[in-house]
């Protein structure tokens, strides 16, 4: 398919990019383009100016210090997969990135794009929510921070306002006794997600803190406070996880489509949430 007419600019710096984005309505940042180009082919969005930020070195760095990470928005999935720093402190982030679509898409697609083109089936958003990540948003007037669980606002809608870009994503250290888990039920071996869950569990025998994020159960990934509360203070066991997952129910109203009914997705949300928590508990001692 073919795009509608569009203008293009490739600024040399972040401030120039912000200026270009503010210059006219219908300006949009283009990074790896692995979602946006498809959107443009479908001619569903009215983009008039593409601001190519994919080569901005300021957005392409990975910083690690004392277990925490700051990943530039234009770092590709493949770079995340292969980064020794990320593999060391947040193996799960590398692993999830390594399962995004295919090698070609991982070579172009960026973590920023995965978040900003907020499709409910995207891989990284639920994980970033579970890990308590912070989204660093840059505008002409400065940098502001938004927690990952408040970043996603709707289909293709995020906390990034016109004239802003997502600059980087900060992921805190997992810390002592914490583990993370991730589970997806997908069409076929690893195609489109039917439902996803990510979890972070902290504690030693007893769960002190639990964060459970679910995706493809609504327009945006969400934290499931009911399941989190059910886990908190309980034993870090598979049985406890199973019981806590029962908290997922009528509160969710996932869409029905060719891959499952609303009720099937609800049930599967329980399954993948439990599996993610099981993994988080198991990895607790291994630092994620």
């Amino acid at each position: 398919m073919l795009l509608a007419s569009v203008d293009y600019t490739r600024p040399a710096t972040v401030p120039e990019a912000l200026e270009a984005l503010a210059s006219r309505e219908g300006a949009a940042p283009l990074a790896g383009g692995q979602s946006l180009v498809n959107v443009l082919k479908n001619r569903v969005a009215s983009v008039e100016l593409l601001v190519d930020i994919s080569r901005l070195e300021e957005l392409r760095s990975i910083e690690a210090s004392e277990g925490s990470l700051e990943i530039g928005a234009c770092v590709t999935y493949d770079e995340i997969d292969r980064s020794p720093e990320i593999r060391a402190g947040h193996e799960i982030v590398s692993r999830v990135a390594s399962h995004i679509e295919d090698q070609q898409i991982r070579n172009r697609g960026t973590i920023g794009g995965n978040c900003c083109l907020s499709d409910p089936t995207n891989n990284l958003p639920p994980l970033l929510i579970a890990l308590g990540a912070t989204m660093n948003i840059q505008s002409g007037s400065g940098l502001r921070q938004v927690a990952a669980d408040e970043f996603f606002r709707g289909y293709f809608l995020t906390a990034v306002e016109p004239g802003e870009i997502l600059r980087s994503i900060s992921i805190p250290a997992l810390g002592e006794g914490a583990g993370a888990g991730y589970s997806t039920l997908s069409v076929a071996s690893d195609s489109k997600a039917i439902v996803r869950a990510a979890a972070l569990v902290r504690g030693n025998g007893t769960i002190d803190e639990a964060r459970v994020a679910l995706a493809v159960v609504g327009p945006v990934p969400i934290r499931h406070s009911g399941m989190e509360e059910a886990l908190r203070g309980g034993a870090a066991t598979a049985d406890a996880a199973r019981e806590a997952a029962e908290a997922i129910g009528e509160d969710l109203e996932p869409i029905a489509d060719a891959h499952g009914s609303t009720e099937y997705r609800r049930q599967m949300a329980r399954v993948v949430a439990r599996r993610a928590v099981d993994e988080a508990i198991a990895r607790g001692g291994e630092n994620g």
Binding site: M1, L30, G33, Q34, S54
Partner: peptide, 27 residues
């Protein structure tokens, strides 16, 4: 496929395998 699913357009750009239907020529 026109949507980046099929990989028939795969080429290597600056040493990286990519799908050329998912990249603008200007990029």
């Amino acid at each position: 496929c026109d949507t980046g699913n099929c990989g028939a357009c795969s080429i290597i750009v600056n040493g990286k395998l990519i799908k050329s239907c998912m990249m603008l020529a200007v990029q």
